[in-house]
Design a protein around this nucleic acid. Structure first.
Lengths: 333, 333
DNA sequence: TTGTATGCGTTATCAA
DNA sequence: TTGATAACGCATACAA
């Protein structure tokens, strides 16, 4: 049987109340009894029961984390960042996958709330503004990663997609490209729009035309990138550089280009977005705009913990991506 | 305030006991009252409090999951498989990362036990036989993925590494190779030994010599594979094919081979292990022995749930890998 | 078929 | 400084 404070109380000849106090470093207790009780607790191998504690105190020391799926290496790092912070601060991480299904996301968040998690972090939410009323009812703070909402219980940490798209496109322009395509993502939602906006902004500033046939869509995965690139290869004239919604798309684009016999570069330059490890697996290694993924997770977790523990915290944080020059870009040749 | 069974009881004019029964489909209750109470519960938006339920019933409906790190795509799929089963059966997943640190793994398992998880799944444990006494004390069933132990509370699901190594090597032999190298992993532990054993067995059967200079070690990651391949390229004669401990190693090996100007194939054939999605990102796409990763997670979760819910279950399951022919292997040329 | 009383392990309140 | 007692929300012997 498990050792409880009552067992300790019996062994020490005191009340369980005293034990509870001694164990929690209450001030209103004599140092000697405190020490004595602690020694007994130690000897008996006492472990507090978090469930009972939660029932009493309304705190489970657990964070709910919702991501679409783990097979996406982007989320993986985010979750890792969250877990590291949580573990260091004594919190558990209750992980759930939504599989990009808004309805499922909703029910998961409600389930997590029912499970009494202290707070929730959602990466790449598909629920948008539908959170607000729900959270109002749930009364649980939520931190959104890479999606933005404003409301009483809603916080967010995100990377600046407009800036990132701008950065990528500027880089290509700086290399001398004037024919730059964009492979977006059907499923990218707001982040896709924003990266596209950064792309257009850079083109505009450089006085380059926006050619509709050079703007195509993938699905955020390798296959989608491949298919999109094949369409791009049929345009005439062909772009000399491509900015891709994310690294997986870029990897697909690269595959299609290599298959078509192009040299990358100089025949074509490809830049991705995310900064995935996977980008170094391919030849040439992928140049990309890196999101601070782990940082994103870390900050979200820290933010949530600050809120939970009643410390001041910003409500929204916007991070900047950084360019990682590898091998897939060069001057047009 | 949150709605409890007492609130419902008050509204329905019955005792909270009756409510409790009505909500749990107890047989000893009149259908009408049952329906009436359920309606009221619904109307009030009642959600049972799992914490209270856990305190009472000693079940948290939560599974503890321990993996070394999520940045390894192998674990990612395993966790995904676990989560899917758990979610479908109404269980939560409490995820913790051990970062390959045995001491941390140990403390995490103890922490999870303290948190009252109903059972634990550990992927790629580093703790070995040190589990046994711990579990004896904790009294919690544990399912080990890809590591094997025997003991009262210990179960396991694993892939047959000897068979997998044999399969890969046989395949190369079948292609006509007689000079086959192995790039292992310093950190692969038992699984590395087993795959190596399968490799030797296939060589022996085919009457091929085991050349020590063709057996080198990576670290299970891309960089290690690259470095190992560079060493292999200096041997004379050079192998015409390489079996790699895992896909990341193989990707590294491929990179090094391509850098050295080799054509893969015919100059060199490379086969990996795991069946990662990442193997399709590279050109040529990686031929590999696939582990049923998601299946591994799924089975582990199902096994654990069977045990928890008192149904019969095998204690140990061994799965066979399957060959996926892609593009990185061909006859020696 | 329903209700009363009690317990799960902890913390909080109030007395002593 | 300590202890008795009552919650927290639910489940369950036992009684009615």
């Amino acid at each position: 049987m498990r050792v409880t404070i009552k067992d300790i109380a019996r062994a020490a000849g005191v009340s369980h109340t005293t034990v509870s106090r001694a164990l929690r470093d209450s001030e209103e207790i004599r140092p000697e009894t405190r020490a004595r009780i602690r020694a007994i607790a130690e000897a008996l191998g006492y472990r507090p029961n978090p469930v009972a504690r939660a029932l009493q105190g309304r705190r489970t020391q657990t964070l709910g984390v919702v991501v679409t799926r783990l097979s996406d290496p982007f989320h993986t790092e985010v979750v890792q960042g969250i877990e590291m912070v949580a573990q260091a601060r004594g919190y558990g991480v209750l992980l759930s996958l939504s599989h990009e299904d808004p309805e499922k996301e909703r029910s998961i968040v409600e389930l997590l709330a029912a499970k009494q998690v202290d707070g929730i972090i959602v990466a790449a939410s598909r629920l948008g503004s539908r959170y607000l009323p729900m959270l109002e009812a749930l009364q649980i703070p939520i931190v959104l990663i890479n999606s933005h909402q404003t409301g009483p219980y809603v916080y967010s940490v995100a990377t600046d997609n407009v800036h990132g798209g701008y950065l990528a496109t500027r880089y290509l322009i700086g290399l001398g490209h004037r024919a730059i395509a964009y492979i977006g993502s059907r499923r990218g939602g707001r982040s896709n729009q924003d990266r596209y906006r950064g792309y257009r902004q850079a083109l505009r500033e450089a006085g380059l035309p926006l050619r509709p046939e050079w703007v195509v869509k993938g699905d955020g995965r390798v296959e989608g990138g491949e298919a999109a690139m094949r369409r791009l290869l049929e345009t005439d004239p062909r772009p000399t550089a491509v900015f891709c919604y994310n690294d997986l798309t870029a990897i697909g684009a690269l595959k299609a280009a290599l298959r078509a016999g192009l040299r990358v570069p100089p025949d074509l330059s490809i830049i991705g977005f995310d900064g995935l490890e996977e980008g170094t697996y391919v030849t040439p290694m992928l140049t990309t705009v890196a999101q601070p993924r782990r940082q994103l997770g870390r900050l979200a977790a820290e933010m949530l913990l600050e809120i939970l523990e009643g410390r001041p915290s910003p409500k929204h944080i916007l991070l900047q991506g950084t360019l990682i020059e590898r091998e897939s870009c060069g001057p047009p040749g």
